[in-house]
Design a protein around this nucleic acid. Structure first.
Length: 789
DNA sequence: ATAGGGTTAG
């Protein structure tokens, strides 16, 4: 009909008419016909008409047609090319966008303008060479668009896309004018890069400067508040939404659903979800994840099934929200079903799904399936690496964690604060001070976020690796401490035998506003038992029950038994056990047995060991302990039978080994080890030491060496314990007067303990030993543990 | 004649 009009009314066949016709065009067929009319009317060289046509063609996804139009146009201007670049950008075809840009610069005299840069920068995705973006940023500045808000927003967004957070902020700071979109770009970029605290700060700054914000701003900042579990700030944002009348916007409501979900208020989340007129997939995902993280798996699965029925597609986010990462133990079958579903539907190759599943399996201590998921995932993201590394450290597989971290270093993914937190935990477990210090340097050099997790991990690492005073220095300088931070410090003091400091710190903690937990008291009681602070331990136990209303766990009882037992008050320990309101478990009897062995009380030892035997199969330590009792009574046949029992249950004893770092290189020794290249020199050194030690009064203990849990093999006459080898190696490979630090996986035996005291005396060295339980600082023939260990 | 930013998952 319109076409007939054209034919009958020549006066209307001008550029304006066709432009109107193009914009009203309902489909591609109509548009093609209009193109024909344009040519018939001789307007095929009118740049405005053709630009409009190219734009409409790309709206109908006919990019090839639009491209042909541009490239065959006799005198194209920059507008026409801009439209084409925008088309490529929308069509997610960055390579064509770039080649168009290259063509403009190489084959025309046209100058790219602010539109060109804005379009092309937004077309670049993270699959491309980073230098392209840098080059374009450069060109835009040279061409004088360095202060243009549109180009600026695109540049900032691009830096965030490539996780160059620092550079993005630098560009943002350099912008003379900032509009709402630029602010929003920065806030969303920070949130996308997990810099939630920074995102909140920028939002505050935006409010402070009186900048205009809109629903997009609030929808962008809400997830940051949700991630930080900042309910107060979140409610403030909700008020602002009300104030500017966008509290019913779907995006804002979705953000609020997420906020309330993550802060544990599932009811409000559900109510707000109900306010969304037409919930889309994203808001449903938010609600599903809300149900899951509040352990309402039934509702989560219900909504998931509903979604499956109503649409044929759910996305990876739906599935991730359904995976019970926070409570995997209660929902094993669900976990397996989700795994099966993701395998069947192929979403398992989505890095987020894979990462969530990796996390769940790690938490279930199923490390092999976790590793398989990680290996099978085609794209290794930061979260994926982090999940696998922390999976290893949380399961005590520290060497594997470190190996994986080294592999990560070789990839193009850079570690963040989460990665280093796991690595610090691995170092703490291993006692790897050099590696730990290196990680600390990385944190400083890379300016990684220093949150309470990182600082606590640092304190724990330094404490567990022997630098207790530096740990305290860090502790004092930390602006925010939570209960875990305090616990780490108190436990550090316990490890080093600084019981008094631990008690003082516990009191300081009560004075501050941080409430102690059961763990705090385990740490504090442990510190008391290892320093022989009987009265203090008793007071703390009573305070825990009466002042804090905490119910003692078996660990607390075991600590108390240890406190009495080590101090030689065996009858009091027994009385304490008899007065327990709950049935004493293997931990309590094991501790009692240990105390009986130290103080050589065979009668009570027999009672404790009989009790302990009722818990057979609980762990290898008790079998070893039992067998040691029999050996010390020279009941070798019985001893052998107990060991046989342990072996039958495939509970082989952990072999003893000791690690020493010299110049950053770790050296590991096992009992009677002769594999070290400097083995001869080491044994020679030991021989000469022994002579000097004997002169100073040292005698080898043989009988008493037969009694501790998990010591190294009792073959002193044949094999030299790994600890002595490491010390001897330390002596010959370090300057006189320097401190020697060694780490042993098992508890140190009496003979080595005494020997180390003498070595520290005759060599005038400080020797720091971290054994399986605690630290020993040897100096001038004395040990900091006061012989309690 | 052509603009840029938003909500879910690890």
């Amino acid at each position: 009909m319109i076409c007939r009009n054209v034919a009958t009314n020549p006066a209307l066949r001008n550029s304006d008419f066709f432009r109107h016709l193009i914009s009203k065009s309902p489909n591609l067929a109509h548009l093609t016909q209009t193109h024909a009319q344009i040519i018939l009317n001789g307007l095929q060289t009118d740049v405005i008409t053709i630009t409009k046509l190219a734009q409409k063609l790309s709206d109908f996804n006919s990019i090839r047609h639009a491209s042909l139009l541009c490239h065959t146009f006799p005198k194209p201007d920059i507008f026409l090319f801009n439209v084409l670049i925008r088309a490529y950008s929308h069509n997610k075809n960055p390579l064509s966008a770039i080649s168009t840009y290259a063509k403009i610069r190489k084959t025309t005299i046209l100058k790219p303008d602010n539109f060109t840069y804005a379009f092309i920068l937004s077309a670049l995705d993270d699959g491309l060479d980073e230098r392209l973006g840098l080059l374009l940023h450069c060109h835009s500045v040279v061409d004088g668009y360095g202060s243009d808000v549109f180009v600026g927003s695109a540049v900032v967004d691009w830096y965030f896309k490539f996780s160059r957070v620092g550079l993005a902020l630098k560009v943002f700071d350099g912008m003379p004018d900032r509009d709402t979109v630029l602010w929003n770009t920065v806030i969303s970029g920070l949130a996308r890069n997990c810099a939630f605290t920074e995102a909140m700060k920028i939002f505050m700054k935006m409010l402070g400067e009186g900048a205009v914000f809109d629903s997009a701003t609030l929808a962008t900042v809400l997830p940051a508040a949700a991630e930080l579990q900042e309910m107060t700030l979140g409610k403030g944002i909700q008020c602002l939404a009300l104030k500017i009348g966008v509290d019913c916007h779907a995006h804002v409501l979705t953000g609020l659903v997420s906020l309330y979900s993550k802060c544990g208020d599932c009811d409000t989340a559900e109510y707000l979800f109900g306010q969304i007129l037409r919930p889309d997939l994203i808001s449903c995902n938010a609600m599903i994840s809300g149900y899951t993280c509040n352990h309402d798996t039934e509702s989560a699965v219900g909504m998931f099934k509903e979604l499956l029925h109503s649409r044929e597609r759910v996305n990876s986010s739906t599935l991730v929200g359904l995976i019970p990462v926070h409570s995997p133990f209660g929902f094993l079958n669900l976990t397996y079903s989700i795994h099966a579903f993701s395998l069947k539907s192929g979403v398992v190759s989505n890095p987020s799904v894979s990462t969530a599943m990796t996390t769940v399996y790690s938490r279930l201590n199923e490390i092999e399936p976790a590793r398989k998921l990680f290996d099978d995932c085609p794209e290794k993201t930061l979260a994926g690496w982090n999940a696998m590394i922390s999976g290893y450290t949380q399961n005590g597989l520290t060497e594997k964690a470190i190996t994986l971290f080294q592999q990560m270093q070789g990839s193009d993914v850079r570690p963040n604060h989460v990665t280093v937190t796991s690595m610090l935990s691995a170092c703490a477990q291993l006692g790897a001070l050099t590696l730990g210090k290196w990680v600390h340097d990385v944190i400083i050099k890379e300016k990684l976020e220093m949150n309470v997790y990182v600082s606590t991990a640092l304190i724990d690492m330094y404490a567990k690796c022997g630098s207790i005073s530096y740990a305290r220095q860090l502790f004092d300088s930390m602006p925010d401490k939570n209960v875990v931070t305090w616990n780490a410090m108190i436990s550090g003091y316990g490890l080093h035998g600084h019981g008094q400091e631990a008690v003082t710190l516990l009191n300081e903690m009560s004075a501050s506003r941080v409430l102690p937990t059961e763990v705090t008291f385990v740490c504090a009681l442990y510190a008391c038992s290892h320093t022989g602070l009987v009265k203090e331990g008793n007071d703390i136990f009573r305070s825990m029950v009466h002042d804090y209303g905490l119910k003692p766990l078996s660990e607390h009882y075991a600590c108390m038994v240890d406190i009495f037992g080590r101090a030689g008050q065996l009858n009091k320990a027994m009385e304490f056990i008899e007065g327990m309101p709950v049935e004493p478990g293997p931990a309590v009897w094991g501790t009692m047995l240990g105390a009986c062995m130290i103080h050589k009380d065979k009668k009570l030892a027999r009672i404790a060991s009989d009790k302990l035997f009722e818990f057979e199969g609980e762990g290898v330590g008790y079998y070893v302990l039992l067998s040691n009792i029999y050996s010390s009574e020279r009941s070798y046949a019985e001893a052998a039978s107990v060991r046989q029992l342990a072996k039958k249950k495939q509970l082989a004893k952990t072999p003893g080994c000791t690690l020493i770092e010299i110049g950053g290189t770790p050296h590991v020794f096992t009992s009677g080890d002769r594999s070290h290249p400097q083995s001869d020199a080491i044994y020679e050194k030991l021989e000469s030491l022994l002579g000097k030690m004997r002169e100073a009064g040292f005698q080898t203990e043989t009988v008493t060496a037969l009694h501790d849990i998990e010591e190294e093999e009792k073959e002193i006459s044949v094999k030299v314990h790994s600890e002595k080898l490491a010390i001897a190696f330390g002596l010959i490979s370090s300057e006189p007067g320097t401190e020697i630090r060694i780490i042993k996986n098992l508890r140190v035996c009496v003979d080595c303990h005494t020997a180390t005291k003498f070595i520290s005396k005759v060599t005038e060295r400080i020797i720091v030993v971290r054994d399986g339980n605690r630290f020993h600082h040897f100096r001038e023939g004395m040990c900091s543990c006061g012989d309690y260990w």
